[in-house]
């Protein structure tokens, strides 16, 4: 390094790369960090839980350590009827999403309401908690914030799950894990484009719709319809069940892979699923030797297929 030129050169290099980092990392992150979380962002992160991909609590992406979303129409504590509400149940030990761990990222107002009225600082992962999204005024504007219903209303995780029952419980967070693990995002996007997707795929998301969610799994490569609002187009659980088992049952020209393996060993009634038989019958049906396609088994309550369908039907 005897040359003076190289000293100047390496300083210039540091300056150039440093400025580039300043413009492409520091300024944008300041800008993005000042964004206020929308109601969508609160609902999304509360239903997904901490991380949607690899995490310490769920190293093999089986959907472990995720919250349960429940629809309640009676108070889990008193049993009195209430206005229907969506609650996010975090049983003891399930990690909280980023908005609860670092309320700062919720942005002005949302943070203040969540900490003040919502008492989210009182929630502890070790004992679990139930959250709901509520609204209140802040500086003359109505904002959504996270309410720790365990502190404000005395709702306990176990009671909330029991009050809802399986029919009103959704494994949306575990379903997102399936979505990431199975690579749905290599074909589907979760991001209607700002320019031309309004009519077909629905409104593009807003700046504050993702605070607290990771990964966002927007997808870059679209070989199939955008899914951000798919459940608003089609909310039939029946259709989804058939479509995931074998997309070509409902859409002959689809290139989507079959996801029958997410059904696992047994169906909803506890009977063993005979895949070989099903496929043989399906092949006969395709060859025109059968009039009807074979019946698609109902996914068991704790199967991965159920989690995935819960997730997809929550994309409104």
């Amino acid at each position: 390094m005897a040359f003076r030129e190289y000293k100047i050169g390496s300083r210039m290099f540091a300056f150039a790369l440093g400025s580039s980092m300043m413009i492409t990392l520091y300024f944008p992150s300041k800008d993005i960090a000042s964004v206020q979380a929308t109601k969508t962002a609160l609902n999304r992160q509360l239903s997904f839980g901490r991380i949607g991909g690899f995490s310490v609590e769920d190293p093999f992406l089986k959907g472990k350590g995720k919250p349960v979303t429940v629809f309640l129409n009676k108070d889990p504590k008193t049993g009195q009827p209430i206005e229907p509400v969506t609650a996010y149940v975090y049983p003891a030990g399930v990690p909280f999403p980023s908005g609860l761990r670092h309320p700062r990222i919720l942005g002005e107002g949302v943070k203040d309401l969540s900490l003040g009225q919502g008492r989210i600082a009182d929630a502890k992962e070790g004992s679990g908690a139930v959250f709901v999204v509520s609204e209140a005024g802040f500086n003359g504007k109505t904002l959504s914030y996270i309410e720790n219903a365990t502190a404000t209303r005395g709702w306990q995780p176990g009671e909330a799950v029991a009050a809802a029952g399986d029919a009103n419980s959704r494994y949306i967070g575990s379903g997102k894990i399936m979505f990431v693990r199975e690579g749905c995002w290599w074909c589907h996007t979760l991001l209607p484009e700002e320019t031309q997707d309004w009519q077909y795929f629905g409104a593009p998301p807003m700046l504050g719709d993702f605070n607290g969610e990771s990964p966002t799994a927007f997808g870059s490569d679209r070989k199939a319809p955008d899914l951000l609002h798919v459940a608003s187009r089609n909310s039939s659980r029946e259709w989804m069940t058939m479509h995931f088992y074998n997309p070509r049952l409902v859409q002959t020209h689809s290139i989507m892979p079959r996801y029958d393996y997410l059904w696992g060993e047994k169906d909803a009634a506890g009977n063993k699923i005979d895949y070989d038989k099903w496929r043989a019958e399906y092949n006969e049906y395709v060859a025109g030797k059968r009039v009807y396609a074979p019946e698609v088994p109902q996914p068991a309550a704790e199967s991965e297929a159920r989690m995935l369908i819960d997730f997809v039907l929550a994309l409104k």
Binding site: I32, I105, P215, T216, F218
Partner: peptide, 26 residues
């Protein structure tokens, strides 16, 4: 090396939202 260190920060520190999306593409 810098790119790997910075670009994987969303995983090291669980950064979320648009920061995560942007850093993925960064």
């Amino acid at each position: 090396i810098v790119v790997f260190l910075v670009g994987n920060m969303p995983e090291f520190f669980n950064l979320t939202g648009l920061t995560e999306a942007y850093l993925t593409w960064w």
